[in-house]
Design a protein around this nucleic acid. Structure first.
Length: 264
DNA sequence: CGAGATGTTCGGCT
DNA sequence: AAGCCGAACATCTC
């Protein structure tokens, strides 16, 4: 379930590995997850390096090691990180496992829509530095939000919210949550929204992101009870506002759960 | 057995 | 040129 907050949650799962050396690397170099990455370097350069720090931006996370090494991980649709005992036996979809003297750091991704990046040198790799401004950054103001929507006038608002270039970290459930909280039909075009609606979308965007980060930071699936989140996965979900049944519509190629009664 | 799943990218068409 | 759409990617579950 990796969107903004879940990504940061999984990043922290590897925290016990910080300050410790990698002693052995297990990987499936031929897998799609490594497309474009130097698997040879991952296998030969990581051993003996110390994991120093980690950070998440949007759906991307980075793990920095001694020797100027940056390991990027994107969880895709089904990826997750885990920690296990040092004698852990890698499973079928554990495409990258970093063994330390006390434990194993595991990256598992069944569908392999995720990806691994590798960089070694001075400065920052593109795949990290080119990620857009966080929607929670002070500099991301209403004006910036409105300008972003203006660049995509003909796009459905639900689809626009999923643009990583504009709103890093927003995924399918967060997009649904935001338009639902605003009472806006997810199919509405960005160019057709009035000023009050844009302002409300901006506000709810920030609220959903900050609450998700605060709640999920501690434990997955700990979001407020009355959020659409808990209903949107169900076959016959109910709108938490007034108990009417939700509708599912494909918008921009993604399943969108919304309430025709309160989203106009 | 077919459909769908929390994401990105590419090719083709405005 | 930039923006938009649909298909493709790999695998499992319902």
């Amino acid at each position: 379930m990796p969107e903004l907050a879940e990504v940061d949650y999984y990043r922290k799962v590897w925290n016990p590995g910080i300050g410790k050396k990698i002693v052995k690397v297990h990987l499936h170099p031929e897998k799609r997850i490594f497309r474009g990455a130097d698997t040879q370097a991952i296998a030969t350069e990581l051993p003996d390096r110390t994991l120093q720090s980690s950070e998440a931006r949007g759906k991307q996370m980075v793990f920095r090691f001694s020797g100027g090494i940056w390991l990027g991980i994107h969880l895709g649709m089904t990826g997750n990180l885990a920690v296990a005992e040092k004698a852990y036996l890698p499973q079928k979809h554990d495409h990258l496992v970093l063994f330390q003297s006390t434990q194993a750091l595991i990256f598992n991704d069944m569908r392999q829509f995720g990806r691994v990046h590798f960089f070694q040198g001075t400065g920052e790799p593109d795949w990290w530095s080119k990620i857009g401004l966080s929607v929670l950054d002070d500099a991301f103001d209403l004006r910036m939000f409105a300008d972003a929507l203006k660049r995509h006038q003909k796009l459905a608002i639900k689809t626009a919210l999923l643009l990583q270039k504009e709103f890093p970290g927003i995924g399918n459930w967060m997009g649904d949550e935001i338009v639902w909280k605003c009472g806006i039909d997810p199919r509405r075009k960005c160019g057709d929204l009035n000023r009050a609606e844009v302002q409300n979308l901006y506000k709810q965007l920030q609220l959903v992101c900050s609450v998700a980060l605060a709640k999920v930071g501690e434990e997955l699936d700990s979001l407020p009870e009355k959020w659409l989140f808990h209903e949107r996965w169900k076959r016959k979900g109910i709108c938490p506002k007034h108990r009417e049944e939700l509708t599912k519509t494909t918008i921009g190629g993604r399943t969108t759960a919304w309430c025709p009664k309160c989203q106009k």
